[in-house]
């Protein structure tokens, strides 16, 4: 079937099988490989993107189900060479090691900050509880989100 999805502001059209998972559509068609996958059971959160501004596990959605919706991936966070404060926060606070969970974490916490610009540590921990990080023990991710909250308007450089 022919599917068109708005990904990062551009319409991506491709003929795919109905069973094509959104994560594969994103990675294969526009080649946006920043969105990862780490499990088969919606437990790890490596595949989180935003659909209409809300975090979504893209391994547990059919591409066909997303037609007519707006998908945003990690590649869209940086605009005109300017990093999003959440990206800068992850760098400042050493919130990533192997980097594999990072795109999902970024899209989850960006959505959190959009909804709640000044989250508490407990709110941050709850927001990322559907994403597994094997490297950081989450502590620096929490700090990075706080950094981004406190530097929402900061001039960040690429």
């Amino acid at each position: 079937m022919n599917i068109s999805i708005n990904i990062n502001g551009e319409t991506v059209t491709r003929d795919v099988e109905p069973r094509t998972l959104l994560v594969h559509f994103i990675r294969d068609t526009p080649g946006l490989t920043g969105t990862h996958w780490g499990c088969d059971t919606s437990n790890c959160g490596a595949c989180v993107v935003q659909m209409d501004g809300q975090p979504l596990k893209s391994c547990t959605a059919l591409a066909a189900m997303c037609e007519g919706h707006e998908i945003r991936t990690v590649e869209a966070l940086e605009v005109d060479g300017k990093l999003d404060p959440i990206q800068q926060g992850f760098h400042e606070k050493h919130a990533l090691q192997c980097g594999f969970c990072t795109p999902g974490m970024l899209m989850t916490t960006r959505a959190l900050l959009d909804e709640n610009p000044d989250p508490t540590e407990a709110e941050i921990r709850m927001a990322i509880s559907g994403s597994i990080c094997r490297c950081t023990g989450y502590q620096n991710i929490v700090a990075a989100v706080r950094w981004a909250a406190e530097n929402a308007e900061a001039e960040v450089q690429s």
Binding site: T33, G34, H36, E78, Q87, H91, L96
Partner: peptide, 15 residues
């Protein structure tokens, strides 16, 4: 190494 990872530009095996 953060520069590529925070942009989703890491190059893992499945990429």
């Amino acid at each position: 190494e953060d520069a590529r990872f925070i942009r989703g530009k890491g190059n893992y095996l499945d990429d």
